[in-house]
Design a protein around this nucleic acid. Structure first.
Lengths: 220, 220
DNA sequence: ACGAAAACCCTACCACGGTAGGGTGGTCGA
DNA sequence: TCGACCACCCTACCGTGGTAGGGTTTTCGT
């Protein structure tokens, strides 16, 4: 999948919702190839962090922060060093946010309702020096929802029922032995199920499976 | 073996922000012992899902949904079958939300700003039949931020700089060989770094590391 | 100037994961 | 009844991952 090479620089997520931070940070590290992802709960913490450690390669900021909107932070960042790629993320459809944000120096704007794929595309674009402003600011965020598979069913993945159970336990990080004893079968049998799963999913390791499917729920 | 693994009942997350959903769902499965977590993007989808599949053991609803607030959904749920444990989650500090939500039949209310630990405690409480309403609705969400460590900052995890780099690549699912070549060191050196990381984190596998820091639980 | 710690290298050993290639018994639909 | 498929078992092989126990160099704080 994506190749982001070793020491590319780190990403910084600024959001005051821990769970959201968690989700975004996880997604960044798993699907966008970021080695280090740091989180800050607000603008001040973000600036302090950057002062102490270097300039991040990418900054993702929630528009609505506890200590004011992201606009101030944005301007400060731009004033200090315009180098950082800043991507602003918002949960609502406030008109003009995109343009405000762009004026303040952001390199892109995305909506929390966007599917993760869009998110990843935006990150990639910004990373390459491009900008990413989906709706041309007058298009008013088309309500057409971009639903995407966040939960996967083993069947529509081409797996048998048993393989699905094995997959579920594999995703939870259980070693073969435990899967075997939990299923009351031999470790060998588990291995064979796993071999089948691997080649059906086109990967070679169990860890590739985990990094591939992690974050989406398995529906049996 | 462990608590609610096998067929304890599933959790349902209702939120229209994919990334948030991702975070919450991941946290539920990793830190709250939920084997199955399903996600719905709105109230309608939630109801449809419950109609098709069974009653979930836990429902987590974002207060602000695209198709109106969660109150309608809450009432519908309560009217249909009061059995479900519903936990409402909100991102802002709107006064009276907690009481509104409680009146509508929710079993608990949490704030997105709350640290994940609080989230987990709320889930556990609701699961045991108790309720969870942090501020007594008049206390107006103390601004004292509840910052907590939740993301990979190698240093405040007790890791050296190099170990942090290795950890990052490990989390991306890269095998030792690749890490070694990316870092221009021997595979052996990488192994030693990893051994150090493992015992500092108190785990025994790299997959335990991944599942630990990425959300999947291992609960042995 | 000295000691500690980090980063690097080496050999060797063993458990685990995954593959290959055999076989059995059961269920289902043509 | 026959074939297809699933689940299960077995032995055997090998690559990777992780540990143990040696060692060298550089960096850094006191």
């Amino acid at each position: 999948m994506n190749e982001g090479d070793g020491h590319a620089g780190y990403a910084l997520v600024v959001d005051d919702h821990p769970l959201v931070m968690r989700g975004v940070a996880g997604y960044l590290s798993s699907h966008c190839g970021y080695a280090w992802v740091h989180c800050a709960a607000g603008g001040a913490e973000c600036l302090a962090w950057i002062a102490r450690h270097g300039q991040p390669e990418l900054v993702i900021v929630d528009f609505w922060l506890a200590d004011g909107s992201a606009l101030d932070l944005l301007k400060t960042l731009s004033a200090a060093r315009a180098a950082a790629n800043v991507l602003v993320m918002s949960g609502d459809d406030g008109v003009g946010i995109a343009s405000q944000v762009r004026a303040a120096g952001a390199r892109g704007f995305i909506h929390k309702n966007d599917p993760p794929e869009t998110f990843a595309r935006a990150v990639r674009a910004v990373r390459r020096g491009k900008t990413w402003f989906t709706d041309a600011d007058g298009q008013a965020a088309a309500p057409g929802r971009g639903r995407h598979p966040l939960q996967v069913s083993p069947v529509d993945l081409g797996l048998t029922r048993r393989q699905g159970e094995v997959l579920a336990m594999m995703l939870r990080g259980l070693p073969n032995k435990r899967i075997a004893s939990a299923l009351n079968v031999t470790e060998q049998t588990v291995k064979e199920h796993i071999t089948a799963i691997l080649q059906r999913l086109g990967v070679s390791n169990r860890i590739e499976v985990i990094t591939l499917l992690h974050g989406r729920a398995l529906r049996l």
